[in-house]
Simulated assay, not measured.
Amino acid sequence: MIETPRLILRQWLPEDYPYFAQMSANPKVMQYFPKLLSRSESDALIDKFHDIIDHQGWGFWAIELKATNQFIGFVGLHEQATQFSFSPCVEIGWRLDHAYWGQGYATEAAQAALKFAFDQLVLEKVVSFTTLENTKSQSVMQRLNMTYVKDFQHPALAVDHPLCWHVLYQIEKNDFC
């Protein structure tokens, strides 16, 4: 468990499943992902995240508001061993319910995840990527002091897919404040 002034980053709980399923079926939340997720796909994703955290002690953690104990999304780190031309690498990513956008939660949670990456995992570099159109996530990356590296085609998407083109950012340990 990782705490920030307003948030708790923690292992996934059974009560997170219905909230995450609602997020995963929300067109606004999933705008920059290839598709909405069914309930079974959403549940399977949580199971995967949970198992990775159980196995290695870190991954995509559930985010909970301290003030209300409300689940609001996830943030964390994921090893990308082979999928990308810039692999192997560890990525940082986040997805929050729309009701919690614009309040600094993604940045606050991501800063805590980066601190974990550099202090506990002793990583030298962390990357992040999103679609070219996802300027909100790119703004979070910039607030984290990440720097633009390049545009690239996501290998899991067809070259004619509207979300195929992504932007890659990175931060090195020495640049983390």
Rank of each mutant, 00 (worst) to 15 (best):
S85G: 08
L96C: 11
H78Y: 07
H55Y: 06
L77H: 02
T82L: 14
L45V: 09
I52P: 04
D43P: 03
Q56E: 01
F86I: 12
H55C: 10
S85L: 09
A81D: 14
Q70D: 12
L45R: 15
C89L: 12
K66V: 00
F86W: 15
I53R: 03
I53L: 10
R95H: 12
W58Y: 15
F74N: 03
K48I: 10
F60Y: 12
V90N: 06
W101P: 04
F74T: 00
H50E: 11
E91N: 02
I46H: 06
D54W: 00
C89W: 07
Q103A: 12
D43R: 10
F71I: 00
S42Q: 07
F74R: 06
K66M: 01
G93D: 09
F84Y: 15
L96S: 01
G104D: 13
W58Q: 02
N69Q: 15
D47T: 14
D47H: 12
W94I: 13
W101Y: 06
Q56L: 03
F71W: 06
E41S: 08
S42M: 04
C89M: 14
D47L: 13
G104S: 05
I52W: 02
L77E: 05
E41N: 08
G76F: 00
D54L: 15
D54Y: 01
Q83S: 13
Q80G: 01
T68K: 05
G59E: 07
F86G: 08
N69S: 10
I63C: 03
Q83I: 13
F49Y: 14
I92C: 11
E91S: 13
I92T: 14
Q56Y: 04
F84S: 05
W58V: 05
W101I: 07
V90H: 09
Q56M: 03
H55K: 13
I46L: 12
S42V: 03
F49Q: 05
W94S: 15
W58D: 00
Q56T: 08
W101E: 04
A67I: 03
A44S: 14
H78I: 14
F49A: 06
F86D: 11
F86Q: 10
T82H: 11
L45P: 02
L45F: 10
F49L: 06
V90R: 08
H50T: 15
G102H: 11
W101H: 08
F74G: 04
E79Y: 06
Q56G: 04
W61S: 01
F86M: 07
A99T: 09
V90C: 12
F84M: 11
F71K: 02
W61L: 04
A44H: 05
E91D: 14
S87P: 05
H78T: 09
W58G: 07
Q70L: 07
L45K: 15
S85V: 10
G102M: 11
Q70F: 00
D97S: 15
A81K: 15
S85Q: 11
I72M: 03
L77Y: 05
L96T: 06
K48W: 09
A99V: 00
D97N: 14
A44Y: 02
R95K: 13
G73T: 00
F71M: 04
I53M: 07
T82A: 13
I52N: 02
S87F: 10
H78S: 11
A99Q: 14
K48N: 10
R95G: 11
P88G: 10
